[in-house]
């Protein structure tokens, strides 16, 4: 039995005017750490809400832990842990009061499942009498995770848990998730940060309500269809404009220090031609090398393919 299944799920808002989730089919195995990767407005939150039974889909069927999200919603609600995107806890209750409240709400006690949250809770325990509103972003997030875990759920839904959290806290958070996975909990997590995708076992790339690709991050990267070049020169902005005008170039995007470039002609001479071409434009300090694509490269390529063009932005 799969931990989560979605079959042809469609959800619209405003009487059908806004298409949030467009015919999504997906299966998640037990014990998997699965990532739903996509920007704001991709439909991630709607999928989460449908699975956590707080929202009804227009079309399609879905199940969590073998239970139907419509018929057996009460059974599902007992088996899942959920951290909504905007979740901010009760700001005026202390850390301990928040945790105690959620424990009781789910019919358990802090002591009963303490082993599960011990690792995480120990980090915030020094502040247990502080009100949640006075905690930092990273601390709040840890407390929220404790609250979602306190009843030992079978499936854990984390909707954008790392949004607005600094890089250090994000990394710590993902380490916590890995440890939770070892306890056998299925984790479904969504994020707009593409670099977090590689931390998941499998991912679904989502854009405009559709799933563009589902696989392991490694596979998605490995199946990038063409060579990708990292290109750099002394004047990066001029280089970007020059490459976009160039006949040789299929796409060219700025990626931090380098430009990521794909060519229309993917033969062995590609890199050499590109270097000569750039040099002819008067650039200095030129660097051209073949590079391993990132999930973000894949995402961009898939987005452009969907829109039917490789138009250069």
């Amino acid at each position: 039995m799969k931990a989560v299944t979605l079959k042809n799920i469609t959800k619209t808002y405003d009487k059908g005017k806004v298409l949030a989730v467009d015919d999504v089919t997906l299966q998640i195995d037990r014990g998997e750490l699965f990532g739903l990767i996509g920007p704001d407005g991709a439909g991630k939150t709607s999928v989460f809400r449908i699975l956590t039974t707080v929202l009804l889909a227009d079309k399609g069927s879905a199940s969590v832990d073998g239970f139907d999200v419509v018929k057996d919603y009460q059974s599902i609600r007992r088996r899942i842990g959920y951290m909504p995107g905007k979740f901010s806890l009760y700001q005026d209750l202390t850390v301990k009061e928040n945790l105690g409240f959620f424990a009781t709400l789910f019919g358990t006690t802090i002591e009963e499942n303490y082993a599960l949250i011990k690792d995480i809770y120990e980090q915030i325990e020094p502040f247990k009498n502080r009100r949640a509103g006075k905690l930092s972003g990273g601390m709040k997030q840890k407390l929220a995770l404790c609250c979602a875990l306190i009843h030992k759920p079978e499936v854990l839904f984390l909707d954008e848990p790392t949004t607005g959290v600094d890089a250090v806290s994000r990394r710590e958070f993902w380490e916590m998730l890995k440890r939770l996975k070892q306890q056998g909990i299925t984790i479904l997590v969504s994020t707009p940060y593409m670099d977090e995708a590689v931390l998941c076992e499998r991912i679904a790339l989502m854009q405009n309500g559709k799933i563009m690709s589902v696989n392991t991050p490694q596979h998605i990267i490995a199946t990038y269809p063409v060579p990708l070049y990292a290109v750099k020169s002394g004047n990066i902005y001029k280089l970007l404009n020059d490459l976009r005008k160039s006949e040789l170039v299929e796409s060219s995007f700025a990626f931090g220090e380098y430009l990521h470039v794909t060519l229309k002609n993917n033969d062995a001479a590609g890199a050499g031609n590109l270097r000569n071409h750039i040099a002819a434009q008067g650039h200095t300090n030129i660097e051209v090398s073949v590079m391993a694509p990132t999930i973000e490269d894949s995402f961009i390529r898939l987005t452009n393919k969907k829109q039917g063009s490789f138009a250069q932005a």
Partner: peptide, 13 residues
């Protein structure tokens, strides 16, 4: 507003 309603709904309460 605080998103806690979602949790309450999802709880067995």
């Amino acid at each position: 507003e605080s998103g806690t309603m979602e949790i309450l709904l999802v709880s067995p309460f």
